[in-house]
Design a protein around this nucleic acid. Structure first.
Lengths: 184, 184
DNA sequence: GGTTGCATGTAAATGGTTACATGATTGT
DNA sequence: ACAATCATGTAACCATTTACATGCAACC
């Protein structure tokens, strides 16, 4: 899914400015499975307008750039539906956290500990944020995906809490043993 | 983490060819949190050699390109340790599955059903694969990350199994109601 | 006879992030 | 004072994926 389809999806849920679309990916319903930066959103919106898939109205504002509120067009909705028909590419997940952790023997235990804390805090912040989403008017499928994300974050946070102490013990024990004599 | 650091990490775990590194990301211990294609691995390995972070020995083979087995150097290990000190960039997750699902109202229920099945099958295949990994000789931190991944896959697979039928019911009920009169 | 696995590599195309440019207002 | 929020946009840079090139052996 490229930025254009992502924006089309955002607009399908309601009119929005580029700035608001960014927030949808950062804090809104979409935050747990996609993200996007201004550098990809603004050019994508321009292209959507060019192609007749969206239109915008300018809302002048005092002392601040005019706000451009975009709306999806009928043609845009068709294009979105079309894009949704394409085979889903496999999920892509990349985690520096996991990568660094895997090399526990090259990283001081204190850093491992801090990394876990930061990661757990990240999961917990997401949980709090997602719990605050108002899904009263949301469709079943939106709730379905929302709750999946929430459950995964909860599982991950709980795992870190539950296993942190044990890991640090083991890592310290491993460090005290192998290579040269150590201990000293 | 760019391809060079990823390769360095792979080589830290033992000598390997480019082909084998690819497999590590595809099926091995690293599969659930990073991936990489040949197009990034081979150039990365060449650069590592150029920079003295890795060396290789050629193993001639019959009727097939020579196999180049790479080893990390002391300097390479230093570079890896250095890279691991950098602040971890936040996890990045992108899922076409979630994106498509969220637009349940634009997608035929049968397709939703199939999408869920494929996604569940994907999780389950990962679970089976990861369960087969031999972690007898693995460090505590490798096991820690491995088990986290396994638990997340299990949670996701169970969630899909548990909620699929209900979702499809709700989606069909929603389709039968709104917009125009429908029902007919 | 077709697909998968082994094995390396390059080049083009893709597409996204980061940094910059601009700037007022509100909160700490 | 400083950071964050609001608000849009461009351009350079970066990295990766995809497709191509080559080719045998083994399995189904």
């Amino acid at each position: 899914m490229d930025a254009k389809v992502l924006c089309l999806g955002a607009l399908h849920r309601g009119d929005a400015s580029g700035y608001e679309i960014k927030k949808l990916f950062e804090e809104g319903d979409f935050s747990h499975f996609y993200e996007s930066s201004f550098g990809s959103i603004y050019p994508a919106l321009n292209k959507l307008v060019e192609d007749g898939l969206a239109v915008f109205t300018e809302h002048p504002q005092d002392k601040r750039p005019d706000k451009k509120v975009y709306s999806i067009t009928a043609k845009g909705r068709e294009a979105l539906a079309e894009a949704l028909k394409a085979p889903a590419t496999p999920d892509r997940y990349r985690s520096d956290f996991c990568f660094i952790m895997v090399f526990g023997d090259l990283v001081p235990p204190d850093r491992l500990s801090k990394l876990i804390d930061v990661q757990a805090a990240f999961y917990k912040a997401n949980i709090v944020r997602m719990e605050s989403h108002d899904l009263a008017d949301a469709s079943a499928s939106v709730r379905f995906i929302h709750d999946l994300g929430l459950e995964l974050y909860r599982t991950a946070a709980a795992y870190l809490d539950r296993n942190k102490a044990k890991l640090l013990e083991e890592v310290r024990a491993e460090a005290a043993r192998p290579t040269t004599r150590a201990a000293e």
